[in-house]
Design a protein around this nucleic acid. Structure first.
Lengths: 340, 340
DNA sequence: GGTCGAACCGTGAACGTTCACGGAACTGAT
DNA sequence: ATCAGTTCCGTGAACGTTCACGGTTCGACC
C-alpha cells in the first residue's frame, strides 16, 4: 500500500471501509439509509485516516457562502474591537462570515497577510488606515484590471479604487462639542492629533477657532501613536509649551484617556481647570475619574452601513453604476460624562 | 436570452466574450498568451456580468487553505481583543486565516452564528466561555460521531469533547500576588469574582487564605458582569458589607478598573488604604490613576500555544492519540504598577 | 513553398464533495 | 414462487475553477 503523504479524501475512507463515497457521506453526515454496522466501519476508517472533509469542496457543491475580510491596523485599540464585534454580529445576521486581519505595524508581514486574506474573501472592509494599510494590498487587488474585489473603507483616506465609503459626520459633531466648551466659557481649546498627516478632525477644529476668533491655531500637538501613553506624552508636551489652555479636544478616546491621566498627574483638575473631550465613545472612557466626555460613534450603525455597502457591491445585478462609489455618513453624539 | 438570476460563472463571461473558459482565466488573472484586444473584451464582459470568481472553487483547485474559527463571548473585552490580535498574526505566520465569531449575549443568535462558522472552518479556538458558549455549538459538532472538528479551549471549562486546552497557570501566579500583598502587611484580602459558578481563581484565593490563617473566606463578592461598571458595583457592595478590607484581588483587569474607580470614588486612597490587583495585564490598566497592578498574561504565548495545538490536531498523521487531548500551561507575571 | 517558431487559443481532466437516481438484497405476505 | 415494500448501497453527474496539453494561425526566413 503506497503511503499517501497528502491529506486523505473521502475515497480513501471509502476504500478502507469497503464502501462507496456516497455511503461515507451518509455515514459521516448522519443521514439515513446506512446500516449501523456499516456506519461504524466508516467512522472507524475516518478516524484512523484522520479524515477531514475539504471545506472548499463542500461549500462548492453545497452553495456559496460570502465571506468578508475585516482589515484593522490594531485590534488592540478598543474602537476597532467594538467595531469588529458589531461587524461580526451584523454579518452573522446575513449568514456571512468575517475574516479577521490585524495587519499590525510590520509592513512586510501585513502585505503577506493581506494577500492570503484577499484571495479567500468576497469583499473587504477596511478601517482606520492612518498608517497606509491600503497600499499594502496586493497589486492585482488594488489595480483591479480584471475583477474588482469590492472594498469599503470606514473613516479612512480617499482612493479612486474604493467601491464604497462609510464616513463619520464629524463637522457637526465637533462643532457641537466646541460649542459646548465655549458655552462653558472655555476660550483656549487645543487639539491633540495622532499624526501630522492631513486630518479632517484637526481642520474642522482649526476652522472653528478661526470662525470664532479663538486662539490656538499655533498649538499643533501630535501624539505619534494612538495609545494611552501617546496621549499622555502629548498632553505633557502641550502643558510644557502653552500657558492657559482650558480645554482639549483629542483625536480619539484612547489618547484622550492618556491626556486625562497626564493632566491630573500634573495637578490640573479636570474639568474645572481643563476640560477634555474625546472621540469614539468607548466603554474605556468609563475607566477614568472623571469619566471621559466624548463624541460617541454608533458602531452598530457603522457596521450595518459597511455590510450594506458590501452587499450592494456584491449584488449580481449588472451595475451601470460601475465605479459609482456609494457613501454613507454616520452621525456622532456628544455624550457628557465628567470630563467636560 | 434567458435571464440568469444566479451569479454568473466563468463560462457566462466566456460566451459573452466569445472565447473559452481558459482564455477568461488568463485574461482576468493577468497571465500571458492573451491578445490585448481579447483581454479587453473579456474584462468588459466580466464587468457587465459583474462576474466574481467563486472562492470555493478556486481554493478547491488551487490547494487547501486552513481556516480556524475564533469564538469569543465578547470582543469588546480588551483581553479577548488582544488575544484575537495575537491569534490573527500568529495564524498569518502559517498562512492560515482566522474567522471571527463574537457570539455575544443572545443565545439563539449565538447558536446560528456558530453553525455557520463551524462549517466553514477547519478548527475552532474558543476562549472565555464562562457563559456556556460550548453548549451553543451545533450538536453534530459537539458529539462528533463522524468527523471531529478539532476544538481547542483557552482558559475555559473542561469538557470531554475538547481536543486540546491552553490553560493559565494561575496557582503560582495568584500565590505570588498574595505573597506580595502579605509582605506589604495586608491581612484582609478580598476577592471579587465575575460569577458564582466554579472558578479556579476564587478557590486558589480561598485556599491561600486558609493556609495562612487569613480572614475573608466569608466575603464572597460577585460582579455579575465582566465590565467596568460591574466591578465598580461589586466594590461598592464590598465596602458596604465589610469593614477593614486592605486589599482586593479581582477576577480580571476590566473589572479591577471598575473596582479602582469605585474605591477612589468612595474616598479610599489606593494603594495606601486598599491595594488592588487585577488579572490579565491589559493596556487598559494604564488608563487609571494609579495604574493597575496585574497578573499579566502573555497573549502572544497563549495564541502560539493555541495555534500549535490546532496544528497538531489537524496533522494528517494517523493518530493513535485519538482523544488524547493535549494541554499547555502559560504562566502569568506579576506586573507592579501603582495600585499594589 | 516549405519550415520553424512565436503568439494565441481551446479541450479534456482534475480538485473533493454532494445530489439525483437507480439497482440490489432482503423481508414478509399472498 | 411471485410480488410489493423496505432497507441499504453504488454510479454518474454536477458545482466552478485551474492545469496540462495540444492545436491553430500568422509572419518570417531560407
Amino acid at each position: 500500500m503506497p503511503i499517501r503523504s497528502s491529506r486523505s479524501t473521502i475515497v480513501d475512507v471509502a476504500e478502507l471501509a469497503g464502501v462507496s463515497r456516497q455511503t461515507v457521506t451518509r455515514a459521516l453526515n448522519g443521514l439515513a439509509d446506512v446500516k449501523p454496522a456499516t456506519r461504524e466501519r466508516v467512522v472507524a476508517a475516518a478516524r484512523t485516516l484522520n479524515y477531514r472533509p475539504d471545506r472548499a469542496a463542500q461549500s462548492l457543491v453545497r452553495g456559496r457562502r460570502t465571506t468578508i475580510g475585516f482589515v484593522v491596523d490594531d485590534l488592540t485599540n478598543p474602537y476597532f474591537a467594538e467595531l469588529g464585534s458589531a461587524l461580526s454580529r451584523e454579518a452573522a445576521a446575513l449568514g456571512w462570515s468575517v475574516l479577521l486581519c490585524d495587519v499590525g505595524s510590520e509592513a512586510d508581514k501585513g502585505r503577506a497577510q493581506l494577500t492570503t486574506m484577499t484571495d479567500a474573501v468576497d469583499a473587504v472592509v477596511m478601517t482606520g488606515c492612518r498608517s497606509d494599510t491600503f497600499s499594502m494590498l496586493p497589486d492585482e487587488v488594488v489595480q483591479g484590471d480584471g475583477v474588482r474585489l469590492p472594498i469599503v473603507m470606514i473613516d479612512g483616506p480617499e482612493h479612486p479604487r474604493l467601491d464604497a465609503r462609510v464616513d463619520l459626520d464629524l463637522a457637526p459633531a465637533i462643532t457641537a462639542a466646541l460649542d459646548h466648551l465655549r458655552r462653558d466659557g472655555r476660550r483656549a481649546i487645543a487639539f491633540i492629533d495622532s499624526t501630522e498627516g492631513p486630518d479632517d478632525r484637526r481642520t474642522i477644529h482649526r476652522d472653528y477657532l478661526e470662525a470664532h476668533g479663538l486662539p490656538g491655531r499655533e498649538w499643533p500637538v501630535v501624539a505619534g501613536e494612538e495609545t494611552i501613553a501617546g496621549g499622555a506624552r502629548a498632553a505633557d508636551d502641550l502643558l510644557a509649551r502653552v500657558e492657559g489652555v482650558d480645554a482639549v479636544l483629542v483625536y480619539n478616546d484612547v489618547m484622550a484617556v492618556g491626556v486625562l491621566k497626564a493632566l491630573t498627574g500634573a495637578g490640573r483638575s479636570v474639568p474645572s481647570e481643563i476640560a477634555v473631550i474625546g472621540i469614539d465613545g468607548l466603554e474605556l472612557g468609563r475607566a477614568t475619574t472623571p469619566e471621559l466626555t466624548s463624541l460617541a460613534v454608533d458602531k452598530g450603525a457603522v457596521a450595518r452601513a459597511a455590510i450594506a455597502a458590501a452587499r450592494s457591491a456584491l449584488e449580481p445585478v449588472a451595475g451601470a453604476q460601475r465605479g459609482g462609489s456609494s457613501s454613507a455618513r454616520i452621525g456622532l453624539q456628544l455624550v457628557l460624562r465628567g470630563s467636560a
